[in-house]
Nucleic acid binder design. Structure first.
Length: 290
DNA sequence: AGGTCAACCTGAGCGC
DNA sequence: TGCGCTCAGGTTGACC
């Protein structure tokens, strides 16, 4: 499901119900997602307060009062939803229980917060994963260590991108999907950014180091991500914001999933073509993307 | 080392 | 209605 704008939208939705709040009960409903859940996962989260919820690339990071960090990745189909308690709470030995709707098949991890709010992580394909990382291991964590610059941050520029693309024979499409070069882009936003920059996805990455191309591409990446965040992300099949609302940036796609449609660039008479690059669909206009 | 590709898993949509 | 096939927002690890 999620690229940077969707993950950022999820972060903004979860922050008000997670930050500064204690997890009353953490319930994993199966022992694994993509990977086995950490040893003692429920025990290490139950009763612990979440201090801050941040995002790095497509990862969510919950900083815990225990000093550990909960790393969460939503894979292709991961989704967080927030559920207010429906009714009264019942006294129970060893804790209390709020009324909630029955769980569904792919509801894999349940966060019951101390105020009765329930946060459900559902993920039909289970490409998502969760990990607990000690403070000292954050920088060397295998998922985080090699990530490139945040595209909306100061360290992403024509200069830094140029240095990463230099000498690379791979197509620019593949280079932008490589999280070591720039962190957070996925298939949709790479296609859209390349369209905006007028650059063909097939172009060899090493040739996207000219000033003219970089000066189109860097702002194109920044703009498309910022616009998508403002729209609450893109909803294709099953993505939704944490309150169940749909993102609406998919209506602004110029090329993604628009094979055969007329190019939307003013004055261009081309149409959107679909090709396969390293096993994934690329959508572009051969007339105005060179 | 750099580049490509299959694997992980479920569900939706399509043609027959 | 059902079957089989293709495709899907990502990442990793094995292979040339």
């Amino acid at each position: 499901m999620p690229e940077l704008p969707e993950v950022e939208t999820v972060r903004r939705g979860l922050a008000p119900v997670m930050e500064g709040r204690r997890i009353a009960l953490l319930t994993p409903r199966r022992p694994d997602l993509r990977y086995p859940l950490p040893e003692g996962f429920a025990r290490r989260l139950t009763g612990i307060r979440i201090e801050r919820l941040t995002r790095r690339a497509k990862y969510l990071l919950a900083e815990l009062e225990s000093g550990e960090h909960l790393l969460m990745h939503l894979g292709m189909s991961g989704r967080f939803t927030i559920h207010a308690p429906e009714g009264k709470k019942h006294g129970r030995p060893g804790g209390f229980h709020h009324d909630h709707a029955p769980l569904e098949t792919h509801d894999h991890v349940i966060f019951d917060m101390e105020d009765g709010t329930r946060i459900i992580y559902a993920d039909p394909r289970r490409f998502g994963f969760m990990e607990l990382i000690a403070q000292a291991d954050l920088e060397t964590n295998r998922h985080l260590a090699a990530l490139g610059p945040e595209p909306l941050g100061n360290s992403f520029s024509a200069q830094t991108l140029s240095a990463r693309l230099k000498g690379r024979k791979t197509p620019i499409k593949s280079a932008l999907l490589d999280q070591r070069n720039v962190a957070g882009l996925g298939n949709i936003y790479v296609c859209e950014a390349l369209f905006r920059a007028g650059i063909s996805p097939k172009r060899q990455a090493s040739t996207v180091t000219t000033a003219a191309r970089l000066q189109r591409l860097v702002p194109a990446i920044r703009d498309v991500l910022a616009e998508a965040i403002a729209a609450g992300g893109s909803t294709l099949r099953d993505y939704a914001q944490t309150d169940g609302e749909l993102g609406y940036f998919q209506h602004a796609f110029a090329v993604y999933d628009r094979e055969g449609e007329a190019c939307s660039k003013p004055g261009c008479s081309g149409s959107v073509k679909r090709i396969t690059q390293s096993g994934r669909s690329s959508f572009y206009c051969p007339s105005c993307q060179k």
